[in-house]
Nucleic acid binder design. Structure first.
Length: 725
DNA sequence: GAGTTTGAAACT
DNA sequence: CAGTTTCAAACTC
């Protein structure tokens, strides 16, 4: 850190030093601690994200801001310009492309970030995944340096789209940076992977930063932002804006979250790398801007730990995510997925494996275990593009902090994401304790979340490891063949919820619901035995539970959604047993606030939150009628069990039905005529009938409706649901 | 930490 | 598709 850069920084602004400190921490944390698989996968823990956290935070913030300030990109850019941090990322870029221009400032500003970026780039390049990503992307297959180059290109693109410095140049710049940041490197040396993750982010930041050459920077950013999907732009902006602050926060977060070991750096790295590879690389290289979106997605992906096998899919997922996430439709992204062969990505199992676990997402994770990720991957691989996309998007949603923000997107997309945030909530990093399932069945939380088992797991005869990638994939496929949604997020949040949640990521939207619903008989849905409760969502029509007292919302429609629900939840969490009485109390507690959301959340809650998001993305929201109903209605009514007679898929009535509907993005639902059919069809014929109204009613937040609309609009991209089934 | 409870997943 | 078994998490002590 003592490098001349630090000196510059110091001279420039008092703030910088602090940044540098943070940075150092982050690096250290990164290098030393490997966050657990953060991503969507349940395993993923917030902590895991250390590195990710930054980005995520930033991204999340950015997302939020974006959502809020969609129109204010310019302002953001301005902020970026104001904030010196952004420049940090730029420095690398500047050095590369600008030649003389921005170099000075960027360097200065970059002291922290810049150093990181170059490093990241370097490392990234080194990571096998990067190479893979590059390859997969179809861009030039490049050695490690190539990857860095690619990153650089990204950066440059924003600034200088047409003019890319030669890769060699980029490399040179990188080297320069590296040299300068030797300290960093030394610190980081061990955690190349981590950097890789960062790299995507970095690239983003760098993009934003690149243009920075002071005055130009703002303009450039604005243009860039405009180009980029709001989210991405946001991320960039946020990164820039947040600048030191973000860095600090991120660092802090990391520190807090940093789990020393869980997610090995490899894992984290892999995921991010995957994301990067799939999204960033492909898009960036191939296209240009799409890349940015990918980044956002990437961030999400990063969080999640994706199984390596999923890698290819992850790309898709990412793409899908991008779609979902990016308000603007990204035809490119869509195409890429198709073009990109999810499978190909796997190309180097060794790489994936080696670096760590592949991510498929979270995202995550997520999903958690994002959940989703694996699902996404699987799905994607399987073929059902639309579904997979949705799923992937869902997974992406999973991202922890992002979850909330993303919720809307996710829900809209019905795809994946969010959850995984949950995964984060999972933050605890899921760990399984499987003894007989070999971690190849859904019994295994890790497997179900699409995450590889890690050290913390105390499983026996575990096959859910990169080493057994093939087995894992094959098993997944089998399971998916049975139930395409098997790996999809279980909890779905509707767009409404997402919007509702809006800024408060922590809140569990009333609209969020468990896809399948629970079947609790003895726990009264007041314990984690209940998947709904565990997911932090209320029971819905889909639930067949008996004596439901779910603090998050009862199946019968007694909506506790608001404060009451929170109260109950809290009480329940405190002491599940006393729940009955507590429930009543909870109801009484009607404070407008939903403490739940506000509440820091127990891990479970966090997890839930994140999860719901992810899930939300996947499916429920989509169900036009059903989804709506379920989400919203869940609360209100209906009788139970949502077993619908749903026509379609339901061999097993509800599940398939639900899953399908859930999976279907809200957009699709809306768009698709079938929705109407679905509504009528709802598995629980009972429930369905009133879909629309019920839904609306049920939705705690009316605003949510508007939000949905928005989401829907944004979502356009989702593939048709039909394909799968 | 061991044992029990619970409900999802898997199987028939 | 319903019923049963298997399984592992959640919970209790």
């Amino acid at each position: 850190m003592e490098s001349p850069f630090s000196n510059f920084i110091n001279s420039l602004s008092p703030i910088n030093p602090t940044k540098t400190i943070h940075v150092s921490q982050t690096f250290g944390s990164l290098s030393f601690t490997s966050p657990p698989s953060v991503f969507t996968s349940p395993h993923v823990s917030f902590q895991k994200d250390n590195k990710f956290l930054r980005r995520h935070l930033v991204s999340d913030l950015a997302r939020h801001q974006l959502s809020i300030d969609e129109g204010n990109k310019d302002s953001i850019t301005e902020e970026d310009g104001s904030t010196e941090h952004h420049p940090e990322s730029l420095p690398n870029v500047q050095i590369r492309g600008d030649g003389g221009e921005g170099s000075a400032k960027p360097l200065e500003d970059a002291s922290d970030c810049a150093a990181e970026l170059p490093r990241e780039l370097k490392y990234d390049s080194g990571s096998p995944r990067h190479c893979e990503a590059v390859n997969s992307s179809g861009n030039e297959t490049r050695s490690e340096p190539d990857t860095s180059v690619a990153l650089i290109q990204f950066i440059q693109e924003p600034s200088d789209r047409g003019s890319f410095e030669t890769e060699s140049n980029a490399k040179e710049t990188n080297h320069d940076n590296e040299e300068e940041g030797c300290d960093w490197q030394s610190l980081i040396s061990g955690s190349s992977d981590l950097f890789i993750f960062d790299s995507p982010n970095v690239t983003e930041t760098s993009k934003g930063s690149l243009p920075k050459s002071q005055e130009e920077e703002t303009n450039v950013f604005a243009s860039l932002l405009a180009r980029f999907p709001s989210e991405q732009a946001y991320d960039l902006q946020t990164s820039l804006q947040v600048g030191s602050a973000s860095c600090h926060e991120a660092h802090e977060i990391r520190e807090q979250s940093t789990q020393p070991t869980e997610a090995t750096e490899m894992n984290q790295i892999d995921q991010p790398s995957e994301n990067l590879e799939s999204a960033s690389v492909n898009e960036l290289f191939s296209g240009e801007k799409p890349g940015k979106q990918p980044f956002s997605s990437i961030h999400r992906g990063l969080r999640r730990r994706c199984l390596t096998f999923e890698m290819p899919r992850t790309k898709r997922s990412i793409d899908s995510v991008l779609f979902s996430t990016s308000m603007a439709s990204l035809p490119n992204e869509e195409n890429p997925p198709s073009n990109r062969q999810p499978i190909t990505p796997r190309v180097d199992p060794a790489k994936r494996i080696m670096p760590g676990i592949g991510l498929h997402l979270n995202a995550l994770a997520g999903v958690s275990k994002g959940s989703g990720i694996s699902n996404q991957e699987l799905l994607s691989t399987n073929t059902q593009d639309p579904l997979t996309n949705s799923l992937t998007s869902l997974r992406e949603d999973v991202g922890p902090a992002e979850n909330i923000v993303e919720m809307a997107e996710d829900s809209s997309q019905a795809s994946v994401r969010k959850f995984e945030t949950i995964g984060e909530g999972e933050s605890s990093c899921k760990r399984c304790n499987c003894k007989k399932s070999k971690c190849l069945k859904l019994y295994c939380e890790c497997f179900a979340a699409g995450v590889y088992c890690v050290e913390p797991c105390s499983c026996q005869d575990c096959f859910n490891k990169p080493i057994h990638e093939e087995t894992v994939l094959a098993t997944r496929k089998q399971i998916e063949s049975r139930n395409p949604l098997a790996f999809a997020p279980k909890v779905i949040r509707t767009a409404d919820s997402a919007q509702e949640v809006g800024e408060d990521t922590t809140r569990t939207p009333a609209s969020a619901r468990h896809k399948r619903g629970c079947n609790c008989k003895k726990s009264n849905c007041l314990k984690k035995y209940c998947e709904c409760y565990q997911g932090g969502v209320g029971c819905s029509i889909n639930c067949r539970c008996e004596g439901c007292k779910n603090a998050f919302g009862r199946k019968d429609g007694s909506n506790l959604i608001g404060t009451e629900a929170e109260m109950e939840k809290i009480q329940a969490s405190e002491k599940s047993v006393q729940d009955k009485t507590s429930d009543i109390h909870a109801f009484h507690n009607d404070e407008g606030q939903h403490s739940e959301f506000a509440i820091p959340m127990t891990p479970s809650r966090l997890f839930r939150q994140s999860i719901p998001v992810a899930t939300s993305s996947k499916g429920k929201p989509p169900r036009s009628s059903l989804g709506m109903i379920t989400s919203s209605s869940g609360l209100h009514q209906v009788d139970g069990p949502g077993r619908s007679t749903f026509l379609r898929t339901l061999s097993r009535p509800e599940k398939h039905f639900k899953s399908v509907a859930d999976e279907i993005p809200t957009v699709l639902q809306n768009c698709s005529p079938p929705s109407s059919g679905l509504k009528t069809l709802s598995p629980n014929s009972k429930r369905i009938s009133p879909p629309h109204h019920a839904n609306r009613q049920t939705f705690g937040h009316r605003s949510s409706q508007s939000s949905r609309k928005l989401i829907l609009q944004s979502i356009p991209a989702f593939p048709s649901l039909s394909p799968r089934r």
